[in-house]
Design a protein around this nucleic acid. Structure first.
Lengths: 151, 151
DNA sequence: CGCATATCAGTAGGACTGAAATCA
DNA sequence: CTGATTTCAGTCGTACTGATATGC
């Protein structure tokens, strides 16, 4: 299927909130992946860099909890980010199980770049909504995310 | 990561519409998959059965366009649905490239069952929202889906 | 010929599981 | 011992690509 050849979905689907959510998330996800790929990045890169930038250095487990990324994926993504020189992995002398992850200056530049890319994506994504509708949507989604975000 | 161990995400993420959308879609997708799995079904099953029920018999390509499912996935899913006796695949005498897919009585019963499962999922998903908020959300998401649904 | 249809094999990224090793 | 941390090797469902064969 390519997206250019869509017809109207059945009523039963079109009115199903879970379907609307996942269908609306699809172009969001696609746009984000597509645009980030043009600079060699993925969504996980931005999420981890933003988390490090806002909360400062942290262990990988903490990073997973803060970013909402699975620990195993945190490990893999940090491998990529260290390869790019965007973060540094240092053993924690006070707890030898841990690695302390720190964002580098190159990492902060990278974060700014990815934030720019994503800002353009938001515009494209929300084109059909007015400013106040965008605010409503953000508010409603935030309620959902916070409600389902904890066990 | 398990979802019970979340902390608050960084501001930069929490206020990003694309992130809110994909994060809200995650529990939706998880609930749908989880609950459908308890009766041995997947999201694609419901989508195809609902499409067949509402629009009637159709070729596989048409079914793909109407349901928004990729043609290759339509083929695979219809294999599962025929194995379960929920649809019938008949060669189209008027166009020998085509198979005409028809929902069976067992398929309609199956559809009702899956619809029941999904109705419960919606309630769970939208718990924190009032009736009017649910309406707002549905409206806003519909605008997005329709805007991005065509090429 | 160009185009649509059906089929199969395979890819990609995200979410998640299980298990092993290390160490507080 | 319990529990946290890091790591790796997988699984799963969704979305998508590519190639092939067939028939309009």
């Amino acid at each position: 299927m390519d997206r250019s050849a869509w017809e109207t979905a059945p009523e039963r689907l079109r009115t199903l909130p879970s379907w609307l959510l996942t269908q609306a998330a699809t172009p969001a996800h696609r746009l984000v992946s597509e645009r980030l790929a043009t600079v060699g990045a993925r969504g996980y890169h931005f999420r981890l860099l933003a988390t490090l930038d806002e909360f400062g250095p942290a262990s990988q487990a903490t990073l997973g909890r803060r970013s909402g990324i699975h620990l195993s994926d945190v490990v893999a993504t940090l491998n990529e980010l260290t390869d790019g020189g965007f973060v540094r992995r240092t053993p924690d002398p006070s707890d030898r199980r841990r690695n302390v992850i720190t964002i580098t200056p190159a990492g902060r530049r990278r974060l700014r770049k990815l934030a720019d890319v994503l800002a353009a994506v938001q515009d494209e994504l929300l084109t059909p909504l007015s400013e106040s509708e965008r605010g409503q949507l953000a508010r409603l989604l935030t309620v959902l995310v916070e409600h389902h975000g904890r066990g």
